[in-house]
Design a protein around this nucleic acid. Structure first.
Lengths: 125, 125
DNA sequence: ACCGCGCCTCCCCATCAGGCTAGTTCCCGA
DNA sequence: TCGGGAACTAGCCTGATGGGGAGGCGCGGT
């Protein structure tokens, strides 16, 4: 992006455990002198898992079966209309499920929701 | 948001560069929720140098620098307005870049674009 | 000098997205 | 038997999204 005058260390979080990764991200987010690497960005150092995956089980966010259906279709880039058609439901219902998905995944939009879900291991891209 | 009894994450610093290691140690020392591992202690995660790890990016889809910037922001769920603001460009230009991104990534929408990019290793979530 | 391309700006416009309130069934557990 | 949650449907509405065209500026290669 730009030359860094201040010695800010860019840290990439590369941890398989979504919950732990999330926690570290929020923990490090507010530290001055450290910046979390944006996805795809080259980082100076990386945080990697050092222990067998024992810390926390990937806390499966409690999604209803229907929400999972909607989520995978969203990850395919399907619109609400497409979701409705492929699931045999109305667009309103599709939007309903998307809405609660955004809520549960703490996302601001469907793109954010898919990214969050992928990061936290709820789905695989 | 619920407050969980979050255990302190033990972080080991395994970086060959003494200056960088030192700097990270002091930066992380004051972060609540994180404790630096004493030498030999079992740590949940480790900070490692990223330069050693080769950047494996199989098929780099030819994206312009600006498109990469936009893509990264898109992956974080940013709207065109947010992209424009964070990149210091107009919403129109943001839409322009998003448009060519959709084109190059063969996506039907921004969610699809991010999913494609993640799948093809252009970015990692 | 010329062209192509990255990058930027602006316009219009149809559609989509997401938040809102408000219903309906069905089924399970207290 | 009476909730309550899941699943579904619906309307309304504002803002976001994405496709289209039409330019301008700077740079590097031919």
């Amino acid at each position: 992006m730009s030359e860094e005058v201040a010695p800010v260390v860019v840290v990439a979080i590369e941890i398989s455990d979504p919950a732990l990764a999330d926690r570290l991200a929020s923990l490090l987010g507010g530290v001055t002198g450290i910046r979390l690497a944006t996805p795809g960005e080259a980082a100076a150092v990386a945080l990697v898992s050092r222990e067998a995956q024992a810390v926390l089980q990937p806390d499966d966010i409690e999604l209803t079966p229907r929400e999972r259906d909607v989520l995978v279709l969203m990850a395919e880039g399907a619109s609400n209309k497409a979701i409705a058609r492929q699931l045999g439901i109305s667009v309103h219902t599709a939007k309903f499920h998307v809405g609660s998905l955004l809520d549960k995944l703490d996302a601001t939009g469907r793109t954010d929701a898919v990214a969050h879900a992928a990061r936290r291991g709820v789905i695989h891209l």
